[in-house]
Simulated scan of single mutants.
Amino acid sequence: MIAITPFYAGIIALLFVTLSFRVIFRRQTAKISVGTGADSDLEKRIRVHANCAEYAPFALLLLGLLELQGASAWLLHLMGLTLLAGRFMHAYGLGSTPQVIFARKNGMVLTFAMIALTSVANLLCAIF
């Protein structure tokens, strides 16, 4: 049974829903049903939401697989916290006007680091 990954999946899912509502609310305000209507704020919100959709599921899958392989709790929490920090920093950095480049860039660095380290840990657990 896994107990740590669902905690991080739950928080990331709440972030995802929040980002979804930001897109929906902008669509309603700008009266744009499909596409972006050349609305730069809507375009930005869509990209923030999409970026979360692109990276978070894969990262959570890797975290869950690592947990199923019996990785230590401290490693799982370290990777989960790295992912959370990365996703929140990126969403804040890209979603701000003007963008907070430091947060956007470092959010992606943390996300990539989590994915890379969790991938290597999964490989090592599978081999040994």
Rank of each mutant, 00 (worst) to 15 (best):
T5G: 06
A9E: 09
L75W: 01
S96G: 11
A85H: 07
Q99Y: 08
Y92P: 09
L75K: 02
A73W: 10
L63V: 03
A53M: 07
A85Q: 08
L19T: 05
P98Y: 13
L42R: 07
V34W: 11
L68A: 12
P57E: 04
F128Q: 10
F16A: 14
T82I: 09
L63M: 05
R47D: 13
S72W: 04
R47I: 10
L84C: 10
A9C: 07
G70D: 10
M108R: 03
I12E: 07
Y55W: 00
R27T: 14
A121C: 02
K31T: 12
R26S: 11
A116S: 08
L63I: 04
W74A: 15
F88V: 15
V120I: 15
M108W: 03
H49C: 06
T97F: 11
V100I: 14
L94Y: 08
I12G: 05
F7N: 08
N106L: 14
K105A: 15
R26F: 10
T111Y: 01
T5S: 13
R22W: 13
T29D: 13
T36D: 14
M79N: 01
H90E: 02
V17R: 06
S33L: 13
A30F: 07
G64P: 06
I12M: 12
L68S: 09
L124D: 04
F16N: 12
I11Q: 07
I2L: 08
Q69Y: 06
A56W: 00
L62H: 00
V100H: 11
L19M: 04
P57D: 04
S40I: 08
F16E: 09
S119H: 01
F7H: 08
G64C: 09
H77R: 08
F16K: 06
I2T: 10
E67D: 12
I24R: 12
R27K: 14
D41I: 09
L14N: 07
A85L: 15
I101Y: 09
G37L: 04
L15H: 02
A85I: 14
L76M: 03
L81T: 12
A85M: 13
